[in-house]
């Protein structure tokens, strides 16, 4: 059984970007009960205010890119989108922003669920981005792996044995195959292997 996701937000700060004072007040009340400090605003979000946020709640009916101090889809904190009108254009905007969780305005009682989901989805996105970056970095190191294998083959091994030896070096050093290739090329003073 998988453990429960993050579900206690006590001490967090939420920024709530909504025009309607009624919705703002209801979200603030709920945040209070969840131990979350909330700042309700109806204007643009500046980067100083954004810096104190652990989560952002935004009304997707009235929001636009210019209100947010980051490029589209690059929010540094989990974002909950409040759904009001359901117009495809507003939903398209929210999807382009890669909003993490959605909460119907008629269902503000489920704010807690939206917070849990937003945190989890945000964390998974960050994890996926880190994995993608690592894979891209490793793809970039393929040429060095080939160079290192060729270098090892000059000691009289065939390509399979040379690759096996490079793997063994990586395992001993507890580094990736690509990093081992860079190290080997560097140690042998060969072209390619720039140490990171």
């Amino acid at each position: 059984m998988r453990s429960a996701p993050i579900h206690n937000f006590r001490g967090n700060t939420a920024i709530v970007l909504v025009r309607s004072p009624e919705i703002g007040a209801r979200i603030k009340d709920r945040c209070d009960r969840l131990g979350v400090k909330s700042h309700v605003r109806s204007t643009d979000l500046d980067s100083d205010t954004a810096a104190i946020a652990d989560i952002l709640v935004i009304d997707i009916d009235t929001a636009d890119d210019a209100m947010l101090p980051w490029p589209r889809g690059a929010a540094p904190v989990p974002v909950i989108g409040l759904i009001g009108s359901e117009s495809p254009g507003r939903l398209a905007w929210a999807l382009a922003q890669e909003i993490d969780a959605f909460l119907p305005v008629a269902g503000l009682g489920n704010l807690f669920s939206a917070m849990v989901i937003a945190h989890e989805i945000f964390a998974r996105k960050a994890d996926r981005a880190a994995r993608d970056a690592e894979q891209a970095r490793r793809r970039g190191g393929r040429l060095d792996v080939i160079r290192a294998v060729l270098s090892l083959m000059q000691d009289g091994r065939d390509e399979a044995l040379a690759l096996k030896q490079l793997r063994a070096m990586a395992m001993v050093e507890q580094i990736s195959l690509e990093e081992a290739a860079v190290k080997l090329l560097h140690d042998r003073g060969l072209a390619g292997g720039k140490r990171a």
């Binding site: 993050i6 206690n8 006590r10 967090n12 904190v77 964390a123």
Partner: peptide, 21 residues
């Protein structure tokens, strides 16, 4: 009902709470 009085779990400090299930 949401047990907010219990010790909180980390949020921003842990971008991926399940790095490796």
């Amino acid at each position: 009902p949401y047990m907010t009085g219990q010790p909180p779990t980390p949020t921003r400090a842990s971008p991926d709470p399940w790095p490796n299930p």
